[in-house]
């Protein structure tokens, strides 16, 4: 049971959603946008999260869009992970989505909610956006703005008060690129990642983004240079990546730092072999 009460609204337009947010904020209340609600319900039930006003954005038509617009793929923020994966619109995104949680949970978890997750550090759906030069459309008290994804997502989502994501835009040109998604968990396949690596071939370079290894998801171009340097043998490239890893590697109940590094090493080797970049 959630031990506190909140006001719940399910508006039909982004302006209505933002107005509800501003009204709550003007009264000193804590308002939260709500999409799948899986994180909000879980942490509210445990008493680790609270809100006075919940604004459910699932019915906003722009947040439900999933399709192609000219040279871009458009994904609404309230599209569920299963809708995205089942659509097969972009397998890189579909495979990433399909590896998160379980099928029933993915009927509720939304793309925007996963990227916007505050309590859980994994945010695995951010990985393909980080790799594909994506843009994000926001709506807030100042109206709409379209920004590069990396401008609002640095380890976690960073929006202005009252802003919400309505849509993501991805250049279609990336659809043809080779990619590999590997998620390694401690035990069952449905679990948080020990290591998730998403790799995308881009000409003479491999782009790579990580979740589970550190306390946040990220892409690092320096690591990409190391891994893409075919002049060096595979094992040496991977060793360099592990040695020069730019952030502290997690050391928790899921796995020690050493174990995570070991799993990361094997994962990177597997990825490079699968992509034909082993030599």
């Amino acid at each position: 049971m959630i031990a506190f009460d909140f006001a719940y609204s399910r508006p039909n337009t982004p302006s209505e959603a933002v107005a509800l947010y501003e009204t709550a904020a003007a009264q000193g209340q804590h308002a939260l946008y709500y999409a799948g609600g899986t994180e909000i319900i879980t942490f509210s039930r445990m008493g680790q999260m609270a809100a006075d006003a919940i604004i459910d954005i699932k019915d906003l038509p722009e947040c439900q869009v999933l399709g192609i617009d000219g040279e871009e793929i458009v994904i609404g923020a309230a599209v569920t992970l299963n809708q995205l994966a089942d659509s097969d619109i972009f397998p890189l995104f579909g495979q990433t989505a399909q590896a998160i949680a379980d099928r029933t949970a993915r009927n509720k978890i939304t793309v925007g909610g996963n990227v916007g997750s505050r309590r859980l550090m994994y945010r695995e759906m951010a990985l393909p956006f980080l790799l594909c030069d994506s843009k994000v459309k926001l709506f807030g008290p100042q109206g709409a703005r379209l920004l590069p994804f990396t401008d609002v997502f640095h380890h976690a989502l960073n929006l202005k008060p009252g802003e919400l994501i309505t849509q993501f835009y991805i250049p279609r040109s990336f659809v043809a690129n080779t990619f590999v998604h590997l998620k390694k968990t401690k035990q069952s396949s449905v679990n948080y990642p020990l290591v998730t690596v998403l790799a995308l071939e881009d000409g003479d370079r491999i782009r790579m983004a990580f979740s589970g290894v550190c306390a946040f998801p990220f892409r690092d171009e320096r690591l990409e240079e190391l891994v893409s340097n075919r002049a060096r043998p595979l094992c040496e490239r991977v060793k360099q990546v592990i040695e020069q890893f730019p952030h502290e590697v997690l050391h928790d109940l899921e796995g020690s730092e050493d174990y995570r590094k070991f799993v990361l090493q094997l994962t990177l080797e597997e990825i490079l072999k699968q992509m034909g970049w082993a030599v």
Partner: peptide, 30 residues
């Protein structure tokens, strides 16, 4: 349809197993 539920419990109509049923809900009830 725009849906609103205040801080107090309210009576809502929910379509369950082919029938409309009235239920008293707090907005935070699962």
């Amino acid at each position: 349809m725009s849906v609103r539920c205040g801080l107090r419990p309210g009576v809502f109509e929910v379509h369950v197993n082919g029938q409309f049923r009235e239920v008293v809900l707090r907005s935070s009830d699962t």
